[in-house]
Design a protein around this nucleic acid. Structure first.
Length: 764
DNA sequence: CAGAATACTTTTTTT
DNA sequence: AAGTATTCTG
């Protein structure tokens, strides 16, 4: 062991130490929340390098977010002595999508892509699908674009090309045809969606033995963070890179070779070091497979799963609550967090009349925390869905408290930025129809629907891109569209040889975007954002432009192309800088991996958290519970849980009951800031913003009305029977008296709103 | 053809 | 409620 190694290992607990210093073999680390997972991962890499078991060149590390990748790089640079710092560059560290992009850029020819292929984000993909359906005259009632998008992505994540998808009825066959048509259109445009990045690079390695060999020999150690959130395709991708001669004998697709006994030994590939927590798997809805953990253990013959259960983050009460909640999940690998810290403060629970009250109370509480010396940036407001942030923001804004919202509309997703990027994309690749359609008439330049329809027809008959179809037109359409094509040419020529920020500047001016927003009333913010785009380009060139060494055998790619890829892959949390002390607002999903001294989990109401759409499936509830587990374990010292009786959602007031997750926490750990009400009956409409306890008599009175009104004693959560719809469960209710309506989720008939005065509902 | 007015959805989570 | 899509009007 080299001399620097011991200091690296100082302060690790026995389990962490054994994980970090595990001799070369496949490993699965079951790492609970706050158990030092990132530390183990980075230290493992540093240890491998400093003990000369691997060169930086031989390391491949996959993280879940770009932020995590950056964090890992920073920590590694600090851990390794200076002489190694340059070599940090030799490592491949990034997200699956980022790494696949890198691979495809390097070997675009073998992958069958144009050198400057563009990446479609979710929204781009959807508009591409809409455009496709239109051009094929497909009834989008029968094939809703969103569903088709979901279908296509799901197939890709199974490793299935259109030709490999089985279809039994005419509907399914048509859907597969559309999948195929979509794929051909993307290929023609030279664009790839997110799932395609993964599938394409998997196929690249699968089909090109020399490339596969090359990377298999290069990467000796593959480290995977957040392994519980990998999907089947990502798993297959890892397995491909990990390498195994036996694998070559297997037929290529479909990806998951279920139940096979193909055991992976590392003698001709990499060692996999996967770190994950099945209790924190919260992306099942988009294809993440917790089962990958068990599969890894079996297929790679992981000798011993190492468990990291000592938590260094939260006080005991918080941890106990988290453990109690997650215990209700059946499918677990099993793990129990413990801490040496004391039990700390009780968990505070607050009930309010309305979402407005809840927000105001949170603001007051934050103010008092501030007075007690808590930094605002150490306070996080978590919520289940983005729509909930508005009320909170409003209250914070009115109180003059600085805050920062994560997620929501990201920088690169703003309309003006997307417009600007579309022009840049057209410079790189004029056949990108998505970009073309977006800005062909923005700012308006007299190209109307008529012309565009003609153009789309021409493109269809010639099987070409929209841009290429211009020459086949005649008359007015041709002249105005040619002028647009000329504009693109002028942009490209004008920006040749310029540094990236100047290219952006040039394009903004020439496109007329600046002009347009200067004349628009509310255009100031947009102009500022466009200005910020130039800055983003500048800092991108400064930071990333030269940092990434050309991958093996790669051609140089232009700054423009990498900037565009960056924009698509890293939707752009626009960092407001750590310096400003702002309250942090985010969804529970985006809070994963973060920690705060004080955490508020708001909107803990049935239907909201757990979300009503998720409760329909059994697996859904378990995922919601894991989400709750993640939320709770974000807190170091103090945790607040709050819920409101009424909440404005999608333009209508809803009456919600407290979340079941509240009941799953032992009462001894809780401290109610408001009197605990015996909830159960549907709350009536409220107009007052008085504190909850003041409303208690009214609440009871109304509960009575409700009870009298339907003397069968209907309440939320109640199983009911309807003469026509059969069995169901009441999941929501509103109104009172003759207006009272309940929302019932019927086993077979689905979700229905029923007026109690009309519908014949019986308790079942 | 452009911009305004109106109608109509959409509402979970996101690399 | 807020955003998107469609229709209307000049």
């Amino acid at each position: 062991m080299s001399s620097i190694a011991p200091s690296l290992l100082a302060g690790l607990n026995p389990e962490q130490l054994s994980a970090v210093t595990l001799p070369p073999q496949h490993a699965l680390i079951l790492a609970g929340a706050g158990s030092g997972k990132t530390r183990v991962l980075t230290t493992r890499i540093a240890w491998l390098i400093s003990t000369s078991q691997a060169g930086p060149h031989g390391i491949l590390a996959v993280t879940f977010t770009n932020k995590a990748a950056k964090e890992m790089l920073t920590r590694l640079s600090a851990m390794l002595p200076l002489s190694y710092n340059n070599s940090v560059r030799g490592m491949w560290i990034g997200t699956f999508h980022g790494l696949c992009n890198r691979l495809l850029r390097a070997h675009y020819r073998e992958a069958g892509l144009p050198q400057l292929f563009q990446i479609l984000d979710q929204a781009d993909q959807l508009s591409t699908i809409k455009r496709l359906l239109k051009s094929l005259n497909v009834d989008d009632e029968k094939f809703p674009p969103r569903e088709l998008q979901h279908f296509i992505n799901a197939q890709k994540e199974q490793g299935l090309r259109a030709a490999a998808v089985e279809a039994w009825d005419s509907f399914a066959r048509r859907r597969v045809e559309l999948y195929d048509a979509y794929e051909r259109q993307c290929q023609r445009e030279g664009v790839v969606d997110f799932a395609e990045l993964l599938l394409r690079s998997h196929e690249l390695l699968e089909r090109h033995e020399s490339l596969r060999r090359h990377y298999q020999e290069r990467f000796r150690h593959i480290l995977v963070d957040e392994f519980q959130d990998t999907n089947r395709l990502q798993y297959a991708w890892l397995r491909m890179l990990a390498g195994n001669r036996a694998r070559n004998d297997h037929p290529p697709s479909p990806l998951p070779e279920e139940g096979g006994d193909n055991i992976r030994t590392p003698k001709d590939g990499a060692y996999i070091f996967a770190v994950g927590d099945d209790d924190q798997s919260i992306y099942g809805f988009r294809g993440a497979e917790v089962g990958n953990m068990r599969d890894l253990e079996r297929e790679f013959q992981v000798a011993k799963v190492i468990r990291l259960e000592q938590n260094y983050r939260s006080h005991g009460n918080i941890l106990d609550a988290a453990n109690a909640i997650i215990k209700n999940n059946a499918a677990r690998l099993g793990k129990n967090l413990w801490t040496e810290a004391g039990s700390g403060e009780p968990i505070r629970v607050f009930e309010s009349l309305s979402d407005l009250d809840e927000a105001r109370w949170i603001v007051e509480e934050i103010k008092s925390l501030s007075r007690d010396g808590h930094a605002r940036k150490e306070v996080a407001l978590l919520y289940r869905s983005n729509a909930q942030s508005r009320v909170l923001e409003h209250a914070l804004f009115n109180a003059g408290l600085p805050y920062r919202v994560y997620g929501g509309l990201r920088f690169f997703e703003r309309q003006e930025i997307k417009h600007a990027l579309a022009y840049l994309r057209l410079i790189a690749n004029p056949d990108d129809d998505t970009a073309f359609s977006r800005v062909v008439n923005f700012p308006t330049r007299g190209i109307g629907n008529r012309s565009l329809e003609q153009l789309a027809d021409a493109a269809k008959t010639h099987g070409s891109s929209l841009h290429a179809a211009i020459q086949h037109l005649g008359g007015k359409a041709q002249s105005s569209l040619s002028a647009f094509a000329q504009l693109i040419v002028r942009m490209r020529e004008g920006s040749a040889g310029l540094p990236l920020p100047e290219v952006v500047d040039h394009v903004l001016e020439l496109s007329g975007l600046l002009e347009h927003y200067r004349n628009e009333k509310e255009g100031q913010d947009r102009l500022a954002n466009l200005d910020e785009l130039i800055n983003a380009a500048a800092s991108f060139v400064a930071e990333e432009g030269s940092r990434e060494p050309a991958p093996d055998g790669a051609e140089d790619q232009s700054d423009l192309a990498s900037f565009l890829a960056h924009a698509a892959l890293e939707a752009g949390e626009h960092q407001a800088g750590d310096s400003d002390d702002a309250v942090q607002l985010m969804t529970v999903h985006s809070a994963k991996g973060l920690e705060f001294n004080v955490v508020f989990i708001s909107g803990l109401e049935a239907g909201l958290f757990p979300h009503e759409n998720a409760v329909l499936e059994e697996k859904g509830l378990e995922e919601e519970r894991r989400l709750m587990y993640v939320a709770v374990t974000r807190a170091r010292q103090r945790l607040y849980l709050s819920f409101a009786q009424t909440r404005m959602l999608h333009g209508q007031t809803r009456y919600n009951l407290p979340s079941r997750f509240l009941d799953e926490i032992p009462v001894a750990l809780l401290k109610w800031l408001t009197p605990k009400l015996s909830s159960g009956f549907v709350a009536p409409p409220k107009t007052s913003y008085a504190p909850a306890y003041a409303a208690e008599p009214q609440r009871q009175a109304n509960a009575m009305t409700m009870r009298q009104q339907s003397d069968s004693g209907l309440r939320i959560g109640q199983n009911v029977m309807h003469t026509k719809f059969g069995h169901g469960v009441i999941i929501n209710a509103e109104g009172a008296g003759t207006d009272a309506r309940v929302q019932v989720n019927f086993k077979h008939a689905g979700m229905k709103w029923l007026a109690l005065s009309i519908a014949k509902l019986e308790a079942a």
